[in-house]
Design a protein around this nucleic acid. Structure first.
Length: 297
DNA sequence: AATGGTTCCTGGACGC
DNA sequence: TGCGTCCAGGAACCAT
């Protein structure tokens, strides 16, 4: 499941292999892979064709390529969803089983979007001034209009941990819901949320307005640390030819302390970890280290 | 207005 | 062995 670290690995690969290339042809093989794009697959094919790729950017789990041609300078926005991959393939390489979109580049290679579960997709979008940019006068940074509601992630200079913790404290919902809310802090998905909660010794069902701001700051720091560690591993574990990624950065097998560990001993206190359903998702926690407290949702 | 629930999708794991 | 059922998850969308 691609979360921030995996998406950043993809971005780095795109910076190496797609930036400074020009798109010469686009073929959408599955219409569902073009999401949130007015005009749909046909329009994306025609508008993306001919555009030069100038930069690869990311905010949270969203990725976008700044592009330009004579008519406009749209962003190609990419979300990997559950199972999306961005691959650089040689021309003539066999189509991947779940190949959804093929963009041919001017070096003869192809940028391919492969996505088994079709939760991800591409769309073209105009840029707007980043609403989170410091100063507030529009400023340097621009983001695609459709993701203007996505908050900065912890690795951006505009990210303000203390402000996020305060905003979180003002909410009336569960801590896990808050750390997963991309309009509050972006980049964290279900897996790293459980890891962060375990590190911060917080139960995800605690209500934010019942948790001291200090503990919320610790939670944000824990999420940042977990993702930083995954970034350090993920950035080095892929064949550079592939802009790859599908979650299996090697980090998962070795380093997870909470996610997927139902029945296994807590790595701090040996108590068997438990699994609970939360927000229609699985949550893993230590019943001793992470007390839900009185205020269960 | 803010919060919570529903929905999209496919294939691997699992039970009988 | 084969078939059916459940489950995984991001985030837009809709309901309250």
């Amino acid at each position: 499941m691609p979360e921030l670290p995996e998406v950043e690995t993809v971005r780095l690969g795109l910076a190496d292999h797609a930036v400074h290339r020009r798109v010469t042809a686009v073929e959408v093989l599955h219409p569902r892979a073009v999401r949130r794009h007015p005009g749909g697959a046909t329009d994306l094919e025609s508008r993306l064709r001919g555009k030069a790729i100038e930069a690869a950017r990311r905010r949270g789990k969203y990725l976008w390529l700044d592009t330009a041609d004579a008519s406009d300078d749209a962003a190609l926005v990419v979300h990997l969803g559950m199972s999306g991959q961005m691959l650089i393939s040689d021309a003539g390489a066999p189509d991947q089983k779940h190949l959804r979109i093929r963009a041919t580049l001017d070096d003869g290679r192809e940028l391919r979007f492969v996505d088994q579960r079709t939760f991800g997709g591409w769309h073209l979008d105009d840029h707007v001034a980043d609403p989170y940019a410091a100063g507030g006068d529009g400023g340097e940074l621009k983001v695609p209009e459709s993701i203007a509601h996505i908050a900065p992630d912890p690795f951006e200079s505009v990210f303000n941990r203390d402000a996020v913790a305060k905003r979180m404290r003002l909410r009336h919902n569960e801590v896990k819901r808050a750390i997963l809310d991309q309009s509050l802090i972006s980049g964290v998905g279900n897996i790293y949320a459980d890891e962060a909660l375990w590190r911060a010794k917080l139960h995800g069902a605690r209500l934010t307005d019942g948790v001291p701001v200090k503990r919320l700051r610790e939670l944000i720091d824990a999420a940042t640390e977990v993702m930083a560690e995954a970034l350090a591993v993920g950035g080095t574990s892929f064949d550079s030819l592939y802009v790859n990624v599908n979650g299996n950065s090697g980090y998962f097998e070795r380093s997870l302390n909470a996610y997927g560990r139902e029945g296994l001993p807590c790595r701090r206190c040996e108590t068997p970890m438990v699994r609970e359903s939360f927000m229609n998702r699985s949550s893993f926690s230590c019943p001793k280290c992470q007390r839900p407290g009185r205020k269960l949702a």
